[in-house]
Amino acid sequence: MPELPEVETTRRGIAPYVEGREIVEVVVRQRSLRVPVPSDLESALIGERFGELARRAKYLLLPLADRTLLWHLGMSGSLRVARLGDSPKKHDHVDVVFEGGNILRYHDPRRFGFVDWLKGDAETDTRLSRLGPEPLSPDFDGRRLYRLSRGRRAAVKTFIMDNIVVVGVGNIYATEALFMAGIDPRRAAGRVSLARFERLAETIKAVLAAAITQGGTTLRDFVSGTGEPGYFAQRLSVYGRAGEPCRHCGMELRHIVLGQRATVYCAICQT
């Protein structure tokens, strides 16, 4: 599914085409998404303009003059920019058409994503209010991980994927960050030292920043806002490489399942 870098890449990709542009038409082809498309979406958007797009965790926030649209890509969704005359494909569920002919088009084969109105603001909407800090913000560091992990028996990989601890560290990037930090993903979070958590926080920031810079990870279901795939997959060290040699020591990388998620690690480099 699209992870934080993919969502941030989408935000950056679509922003220049939609911010400040008048909305002239809205086409909803499928209302039955994970959350039903609001019945007033078409009437509410016509004549409006989106302000500066924002992201919170894996949610995109598209502000209007008096309220905000909340968009989530789910497991397989993508937002891309099309042009008038570009025929919609199967699973193209929502079009927002702008003056000048640009179309913000939502594609979602599995329909696990949604578009809905933000309820109140980011501090009060229950979908956002309990989320932890953004991983690239000053509010996230190794001390936070250490403090929240005391007494926790859960595997450290599962721990850092908890959105209350920190948002947006999905399976791919958790796997990569733990490898870069030299930490066994199976280790109990409560048995990781402060020094190692400080190193892990640094690698989480580094791997996410690198992925955003390179346009997100190339996944079968993901395309960026301009229709181009991401490129970070070309530099993955362990994710998806089970059975191949570790690029550091040559040991065959192992595959296990943690929290129902595939996990690949090096038994020599990660302890």
Rank of each mutant, 00 (worst) to 15 (best):
Phe98Met: 10
Lys119Gln: 15
Pro185Glu: 08
Thr213Ile: 05
Gln234Asp: 15
Val18Lys: 07
Arg83Val: 08
Lys90Pro: 02
Gly243Leu: 12
Arg56Thr: 04
Arg187Ala: 14
Gly120Met: 05
Lys119Thr: 08
Phe114Gly: 02
Leu45Val: 13
Thr226Gln: 15
Asp125Lys: 03
Gly20Asp: 05
Asp92Tyr: 12
Asp116Arg: 14
Leu64Ala: 11
Gly51Trp: 06
Leu69Lys: 04
Leu118Phe: 09
His255Gln: 10
Asp116Ala: 15
Arg220Phe: 08
Asp40Arg: 08
Leu258Asn: 04
Ser129Met: 13
Thr263His: 02
Gly227Met: 06
Phe232Met: 15
Arg143His: 14
Ala154Ser: 14
Arg143Asp: 15
Asp95Ile: 11
Asp162Leu: 07
Arg130Pro: 00
Pro5Cys: 09
His255Met: 04
Pro245Gly: 14
Gly243Tyr: 11
Ser129Cys: 13
Ala65Asp: 13
Val24Ile: 15
Ala44Asn: 06
Ser193Asp: 08
Leu70Ser: 03
Glu22Pro: 07
Thr217Tyr: 00
Gly132Phe: 00
Glu244Gln: 15
Arg220Gly: 01
Gly142Cys: 05
Phe197Arg: 01
Gly151Gln: 14
Gly100Lys: 12
Leu236Cys: 08
Leu118His: 03
Leu194Pro: 01
Gln260Trp: 09
Val81Ala: 02
Ala155Gly: 01
Leu145Val: 07
Arg143Trp: 13
Asp162Phe: 12
Trp117Phe: 05
Ala242Trp: 01
Asn171Cys: 09
Ala154Trp: 04
Pro5Ser: 09
Gly230Asn: 02
Arg247Gly: 15
Lys119His: 11
Gly113Cys: 10
Gly230Met: 06
Cys249Gly: 09
Cys249Trp: 11
Phe50Gly: 10
Pro5Ala: 12
Pro185Lys: 09
Ser87His: 10
Val223His: 01
Glu6Trp: 08
Thr217Arg: 01
Glu123Ser: 14
Thr158Glu: 08
Cys246Thr: 04
Phe140Asp: 11
Leu236Tyr: 02
Leu194Val: 07
Arg147Met: 06
Val94Glu: 01
Asp125Leu: 03
Arg55Glu: 11
Arg127Ala: 00
Val18Thr: 14
Pro133Phe: 10
Ile172Ala: 11
Ile183Met: 10
Arg56Tyr: 04
His91Ser: 06
Glu134Tyr: 08
Leu64Met: 07
Val167Arg: 03
Pro135Met: 12
Arg31Glu: 13
Arg196Val: 10
Arg56Met: 05
Gly190Leu: 13
Gly190Arg: 08
Glu3Ala: 15
Pro229Leu: 01
Glu99Ile: 02
Leu61Ile: 14
Ala44Tyr: 05
Arg241Met: 03
His255Ala: 11
